[in-house]
Write a protein that binds this DNA or RNA. Structure first.
Length: 295
DNA sequence: GCGACAG
DNA sequence: ATCTTGTCGC
């Protein structure tokens, strides 16, 4: 049905010794999962009116997920899950998983690269019976703001939401161009809106569909973030929760996952360098022994 | 036809 | 996604 961009009809050389990702299967998988997507509020908790509210049945634990990569070895990835207490916006749980990711990044198919590892971390936490298990998940990547088809589509946040059966919100730090929406169009919308810093602009495409919203979270920042619904949540609720968790440009759950994930890789690298240095020293000592003690 | 394309 | 110093401002 859809012509695949990677497909080259006149492929004469290089008989694909490295099998390319099967987009046809990925598309089928997305379409299948998409049937289970719920685009309205579907949860038992309520949003607290103020931070000191301590009634039962309120939203309290918000998760954030992200993956960072090592530049030295781009297949080495650190999947990260953090959980924040909505009352304090402090991290109450964190977990990391170091894995080798072989699936390439293909625009539009981010979930097939990143979702498996994130689902695994979530599953591990769920099985552990932790009382901090998130009631909602913020995802570093888009939800229905996703470039396939004429109507809503199916980004990482949707994918994770359906597979983990959790309400999810997608947070993009860059715009994924879709339905005529691009940087300059968004600038127009933002400037036309005459907004204060924590207001949102609906991302209305050429077709008239609302794909999500753009927000300039900080007074000083020109660069907006892009919010779209993932699963079991309405855009209105999603935006409210983003407002409640934004200390800086990016909502705290995403920001903390981002920071801590990068930190994990950084420490790992430092560790490796230390070992390398010790190894070097050891070798040179060995050399010295050979050199000076042979006599 | 060419360019654009979340992380 | 990753690399990277200082710099400007509250």
């Amino acid at each position: 049905m859809l012509r695949q961009p990677m497909e080259k009809p006149s492929e004469t050389e290089e008989p694909s010794s490295t099998p390319l990702p099967d987009h046809q299967n990925w598309i089928a998988a997305q379409d299948l999962l998409r049937e289970k997507l719920i685009r309205e509020d579907s949860f038992t908790w309520k949003i607290p009116e103020d931070r000191s509210d301590s009634e039962e049945g309120l939203l309290r634990y918000i998760g954030g997920v992200d993956i960072s990569f090592s530049k030295d070895d781009p297949s080495m990835a650190c999947g990260t899950l953090v959980v924040l207490d909505l009352r304090t916006l402090q991290v109450v749980y964190e977990d990391f998983s170091l894995v080798n990711i072989r699936v390439p990044y293909v625009p539009g198919f981010l979930a097939f690269r990143e979702a498996p590892i994130l689902l695994e971390i979530l599953e591990k936490m769920k099985k552990s019976g932790s009382s901090f298990y998130p009631q909602l998940l913020m995802v570093d990547g888009n939800g229905i703001l996703h470039p396939r088809g004429k109507c809503f589509c199916f980004g990482l946040a949707c994918h994770l939401g359906v597979e983990a059966n959790l309400p999810t919100v997608g947070i993009g730090k860059n715009l994924h161009h879709v339905d005529g929406l691009n940087q300059s169009r968004v600038r127009e919308l933002l400037e036309a809106g005459e907004n204060s810093c924590k207001d949102f602009i609906n991302l209305v495409g050429c077709s008239g569909h609302i794909w999500g919203a753009a927000m300039r979270s900080t007074q000083g920042s020109i660069k907006p973030i892009f919010i779209s619904i993932g699963h079991r949540i309405s855009l209105q609720t999603a935006l409210r929760l983003v407002q409640m968790t934004c200390k800086y440009r990016v909502p705290e759950p995403i920001r903390q996952a981002d920071i801590r994930s990068r930190d994990y890789i950084r420490k790992l690298k430092m560790n490796a360098r230390m070992k390398f240095l010790i190894g070097e020293t050891y070798l040179s000592w060995k050399q010295m022994l050979q050199k000076y003690c042979k006599t």
